[in-house]
Amino acid sequence: MTPYIVYRTQRHNSLLLSFPPDGKFRDIVDNFAEIGYPALMVNPEIVSFALLELVSNSIRAHREKGVADAVNVRISTDGEEFHVTVQDSGRGFDPGLLPYDIGAPAEGIDVMSDPFCSYRELHNGSRFGMGLYVAKKTFPKFSLFFVDSLEHPCPWFSGKVKGTRIDLGIPLMKGGSGVADADEVEALESLEEAGA
């Protein structure tokens, strides 16, 4: 069976979700709760949380910069992978202000390191610095770049940054059916634990 995405009972191979910066956060959470992912080798709730983090970051940037454009999330599947692109017009950000090296593997990032603790103190504890970190940890394919007004990639220091684009990819479960089935995953995990 060809893998597909379910959104509000409809099947899709590709789906675009747009979130206006003046919308309610609860509506964004509800939108992600309506997505039925194709069979992934990762917990689909973690996938949703990672995407919610990215959308929340983008919405905050739009609000801070007074940008009225929507934040766009395109999700798709090609039968081999599940792809996500999150794109905003939030004018980008200085990667040097993150509490870790954005290019470093997620496995080597220590969320209790001094830079993380300093980051939390800087934001009075209201931000944990988790968003990009969890996305990197969840999606084996992760790339982040800034784009100019023509949607061309450009460096942060160019002074031409219109927004941020994040491309994510995660393999589909081999032989999986259309959408994730918890029984199917649990059965596979049991086989793996048994050394099969």
């Binding site: 956060f25 905050r60 939390r120 009075n124 504890g125 209201s126 944990f128």
Partner: peptide, 10 residues
């Protein structure tokens, strides 16, 4: 616990 989107301090 952090829920900045709701305007809550940690």
């Amino acid at each position: 616990v952090s829920f900045e989107e709701l305007g809550l301090a940690a």
